[in-house]
Design a binder for these strands. Structure first.
Lengths: 334, 334
DNA sequence: CTGAAAGCGCTAACAC
DNA sequence: GTGTTAGCGCTTTCAG
């Protein structure tokens, strides 16, 4: 078959080839039960012969739906959203949905651009991860009454569902356990790239301290003139010492660990280290860093599944789904 | 504005609101220079008033193009394709192209499914990373004369361009340098997940050995009954020793390092370690692993740019673009 | 069970 | 300059 000079093969070509009307062809394409068996055969033969592929664009126009959904992620987040994407894609594949990938840079106002695009392209839905979407933009999106699945936080709303892990509870429980044992020299390393997540973590840890009649004061802020977390921590730990240091991402946890060790501290004997967001590297690096294990794959898979439900207008028992976490204690915990 | 019960706003609505014909509205949307300034104003006012967004699907139908291109990656590859995606997405954004993300599992024959989808959705082009696409499938794709950009290897063809780094040359040069110094106890760790890449590496290293009148024989195969590379290497290095061990991905390099050290070898004194595919973790892990630095971001960016050229039918000076690499020597090299 | 025809929203000749 | 009209490829009443 020579694609180059070939006339486009449309539903008309098939209809003509099979000697039926295009309506009939449409019926067999869509598996309508009314068409007689022998005509179905004829049509299918014609389809095969011409190698006909229904034009999804035209179908989209006629049906007012695109079976495409937009996925918006923070730029450069693939190190920790990789499994999420796999989960999402795998169930999207099952339901025949296409995923259009967008990334947004924190701070830069390109989210509205993305929304514009999503509306113009008539996406059936949009899945947004984390703090990529500010509430004003969210409101903007609501005007178009497009189904939204929010990943990472619990967000309530009309055509919004969310799938998340309660990080506030996680860090609250984790630190409470230390406080109970009288250990309160606990520090939290700032993650400059995820301000919203930081807020959540700080809230959780503060709550734990308050319950024990104490005040949390060891948020290690990384000054903006330091390019990397490591370069600052290296200095910080030369004259600071904590019993437990909690970091958000694996890179920050490793940076913490390296900084401590290079300043002569023993891990975990002198300071324990804990990482909020697990990654495969936590198992690989020595000593292996203890961390929270979050079902990232499931986050994506569940998000996509609930999206299909919204699109099918299926009843949704729970508009916000909380997934549970595990604590994986490894070498950086006593 | 109440999206729910609002009538769809189309080009007709705008035309009516502005008191012009839909052709005129179409002209101002597409920035045609012929329309008079005051009517343009009228139309734009109407567009703003109605919050009209052109339907990209209808445009796609009329223009026979979707401004969408498919990106096919190996499943679970996001750890090392993350920057590539960022590069791709950033230039796609500039040219207003949407990226539809697909993943394919090695071995499983789902590539044809993806191709089917790509054709049905009338993607303008397809960008494929690495060994995701076998030659038979590639031939299949050629029937549809859809522009293809192949990432990772040099592939020649009619409507095919490729962007790649010559890994064979890289490993050839790197090992040659050792051989020149008389060091020939060099081993290569198998990467079960990237068979095609392994072939390339083996070819390069074998060539280097041959040029020095030697034979390369230290390919460390990971038996299939071992779940992880590490679990096997752990055992392997209890009775093997090499001067230099080369691994493909960072995880394998770290696994190698851990295995060596846990078997009492000193790195790099006893054995040096080198990693073919750089990642940010190589800088973080201690000792820091020496590696090849590949311009992953550029791979994506260049691929997308050349794709736009193909789509614009711009003249393309070079259908296959080789990007250069750097060797980053860190702590695992003497 | 099948066909005819209207419509999905937009573009692009072609008139005026 | 602007309007008219014929597609783009498909779905879906509505007849028969």
């Amino acid at each position: 078959m020579d694609g180059k000079n070939m006339k486009r093969v449309t539903i008309y070509s098939v209809a003509h080839e099979a000697g039926v009307s295009l309506a009939t062809v449409s019926r067999v394409i869509n598996g309508s039960p009314v068409v007689r068996e022998d005509t179905r055969q004829k049509v299918q033969a014609a389809i095969a012969k011409l190698d006909y592929k229904p034009n999804a664009i035209a179908q989209g126009l006629a049906l007012q739906k695109t079976t495409s959904i937009a996925l918006v992620l923070p730029e450069s987040s693939f190190n920790y959203t990789g499994k999420l994407i796999n989960g999402l894609l795998n169930v999207a594949k099952i339901y025949k949905y296409n995923i259009i990938l967008h990334t947004s840079t924190a701070g830069i106002n390109e989210m509205n651009e993305i929304i514009e695009n999503v509306i113009k392209s008539r996406m059936d839905g949009i899945i947004v991860y984390n703090d990529t979407l500010k509430s004003e933009e969210l409101k903007n999106l609501k005007n178009y009454s497009i189904p939204i699945v929010y990943l990472g936080y619990c967000v309530e709303g009309d055509s919004i569902c969310s799938v998340y892990v309660d990080l506030e509870k996680a860090i609250y429980e984790f630190t409470s356990d230390y406080l109970k044992r009288g250990i309160d020299n606990i520090a939290l390393v700032e993650d400059r790239k995820n301000p919203l997540e930081m807020e959540v973590l700080e809230r959780g840890i503060t709550k734990a301290f308050k319950e024990y009649g104490k005040k949390f004061g060891n948020l290690i802020r990384i000054p903006s003139d330091y390019r990397t977390t490591y370069s600052y921590l290296r200095k910080y730990f030369s004259n600071h010492k904590h019993d437990l240091v909690i970091a958000n991402r694996d890179t920050q946890a490793v940076a913490t660990m390296n900084s401590c060790m290079e300043n002569g501290m023993k891990v975990p004997e002198d300071t324990e280290i804990f990482c909020m967001m697990d990654s495969k590297y936590n198992d690989i690096v020595r000593p292996r860093i203890s961390s929270l294990s979050i079902p990232t794959y499931d986050l994506g898979a569940v998000a996509m599944r609930i999206m299909t439900k919204m699109l099918n207008k299926d009843p949704i028992s729970d508009k916000s789904i909380e997934l549970s976490y595990l604590v994986s204690l490894r070498d950086t915990t006593k």
